[in-house]
């Protein structure tokens, strides 16, 4: 089988990997790097459970060929905390009950983190717009939006991904 040598920097650590040309990034993260925080669900870029940051921007990792990410910096949900301390977004999700079964949560947290990096004080409409591509089947979204609003109001202490 054809194999490609690629290099990925995941949560600050560089990995030299040999991947198949048809291998998706989600599988590389979960199976090769044992980072199972990134979930796979719909496989069609619709639900957002597999969202990671690729050079700072949210992407669907389940439909992204790992080869296309060669040379990129990837941030997964595992890369957000610092020395065991959760970020403001993660804390807010806990405090506001924005998590129930938790399957979609990494995708929501990553997407919210990217939004607040780009726009530290988004309006409610901007939050809803940024999260419209993520599906949650438990919370009904209200608490998720409230959690992000709370971080925005708190002027974003410790929100950063780096």
């Amino acid at each position: 089988m054809t194999q490609l040598d690629i290099s990925l920097t995941v949560n600050g650590a560089r990995h030299e990997l040999s991947v198949g040309p048809t291998e998706m990034l989600t599988e590389v993260l979960r199976r090769r790097l044992d980072m199972t925080g990134t979930n796979r669900d719909c496989g069609m870029g619709i639900c957002g459970a597999c969202t990671v940051l690729l050079d700072g921007q949210p992407v669907s990792s389940c439909i992204l060929l790992a080869a296309l990410a060669d040379g990129s910096e990837i941030t997964t949900v595992e890369g957000l905390e610092r020395d065991g301390r959760l970020t403001a977004v993660q804390e807010a999700f806990l405090r506001h009950g924005a998590v129930q079964c938790g399957y979609c949560t990494p995708g929501f947290v990553i997407t919210s983190t990217a939004l607040l990096e780009e726009n530290p004080s988004p309006s409610r409409e901007e939050i809803v717009e940024a999260l419209k591509g993520n599906l949650c089947r438990c919370t009904g979204y209200k608490k998720i939006v409230e959690a992000v609003e709370a971080v925005a109001r708190a002027k974003g202490d410790g929100v950063g991904v780096s």
Binding site: T22, M24, G43, M44, G45, S60, C62, I63, L64, L65, L68
Partner: peptide
């Protein structure tokens, strides 16, 4: 051809 790889990834997964 692969550019963004979006539709391609979906079609492969399907």
């Amino acid at each position: 051809l692969v550019a963004g790889g979006v539709a391609l990834g979906i079609l492969m997964n399907e």
